[in-house]
């Protein structure tokens, strides 16, 4: 369950959006430059919005009016960045365990994630020895291994060639079935949204243009 109100000015875009959803996988769909990533960054706490109120499962992440602003490290989001951002000096295993170690917890899901994402043979490799699709799977695994309350996927399939794209999409679908982690997917690809989302928010020029269930979205 997420409730979000966000007002924020970027250099070339004014974001003014408000929505709430209890969909397990909610997609933010729209052209690039519509402000979708900014919304994810606001949820993760990576930007200082002009005005925001974001509530995740009854916990206030930020409420500018009330002076509440949780630090990113405490928000418990698993962010899969569009540009990967795997730690280049750590092995795949080191990357996957980073979140659990940072939070001084045991990585309970580790074995399961390695299996679901088929990362076993890659565990001792460094990120620069991975293909694009492998890197993205590790990034997804790293975010999930931190046991987030919400998974933020920013264009997770962009930049992958066709085969890798199909494969990663397949993994994402399996994870959705197996793990039941609330997910916010940012995408401008219709097939991705249809494959993964339960509900879709169309974002246009920083505002909400429609909130649809996936069937409505599919009809156009």
């Amino acid at each position: 369950m997420i409730e979000l109100t966000l007002k924020h000015a970027l250099a070339d875009l004014e974001i003014d959006i408000r929505f709430s959803s209890s969909a397990r996988c909610l997609a933010l769909f729209g052209d690039s430059g519509a402000g979708k990533t900014t919304i994810l960054n606001a949820i993760a706490g990576l930007l200082r919005p002009r005005h925001a109120r974001i509530v995740l499962d009854n916990q206030i992440l930020i409420d500018s009016a009330a002076g509440i602003d949780m630090p990113p490290a405490a928000r418990g989001v698993g962010y899969v960045f569009q540009d990967g951002r795997l730690f280049p000096h750590l092995s795949v295993r080191g990357n996957l365990l980073y979140g659990a170690q940072a939070r001084h917890r045991k990585a309970i899901q580790f074995e399961r994630l390695v299996e679901l994402l088929e990362l076993g043979p890659l565990l001792d490799r460094r990120p620069h020895n991975l293909s694009g699709g492998e890197r993205q799977r590790v990034a997804i695994g790293r975010a999930l291994a931190s046991e987030p309350r919400i998974l933020l996927l920013d264009e997770p399939l962009t930049g992958l060639h066709h085969e890798a794209r199909v494969q990663v999409l397949d993994h994402l679908r399996r994870l959705k079935q197996e793990l039941h982690v609330a997910t916010l997917l940012v995408s401008h690809q219709v097939d991705e949204v249809i494959a993964l989302a339960d509900e879709v928010i169309r974002v246009h020029a920083g505002t909400l243009s429609a909130q649809l269930d996936t069937a409505q979205f599919q009809r156009g």
Binding site: A73, R75, Y79, P88, Y98, G99, S146
Partner: peptide, 20 residues
């Protein structure tokens, strides 16, 4: 950006300094 990623994973400023 790597430090921001570490931050979302729960790493404190000190941990980011030491590990990243």
């Amino acid at each position: 950006r790597l430090e921001r990623a570490a931050e979302t994973l729960g790493a404190s400023a000190w941990r980011r300094f030491v590990t990243i």
